[in-house]
Amino acid sequence: MHMSRYFTDEHEWIDVEGEIATVGITDYAQEQLGDIVFVELPAEGTTFEKGDDAAVVESVKAASDVYAPISGEVVETNSALEDEPALVNSDAEEDGWFFKLRLTDASELEGLMNEAAYKKFVASL
């Protein structure tokens, strides 16, 4: 199975399958944050405009906001992170996903990076 994966310059990844987008933070982001001890996820049914505060990642040293990379309604959150927030460290780009959105404006995906572009972006930092 191969979905389309997009990346943002805020270090989030988005897998799109039909009208559902799965959102997480990149391996680079978890590495920068360090040991993650808590993830505050949005309630199911919440609707976001692109750029809204969507989640908070607490590392040992600080809290960091995660923004909604695209507009949509939260249809599911990753309950595994409640018991094991360190999943974000160990598997940021698969099992450590944050939430799933039902897209309201698929055209917002157009401005995002693909994997190659994101790799290049990270290398430039």
Binding site: E10, H11, E12, I25, A29, Q32, L33, V57, K61, A62, A63, S64, D65, V66, Y67
Partner: peptide, 8 residues
């Protein structure tokens, strides 16, 4: 993602 870094 934006860090609210406590090291200022």
């Amino acid at each position: 993602m934006s860090g609210t870094d406590d090291v200022t």
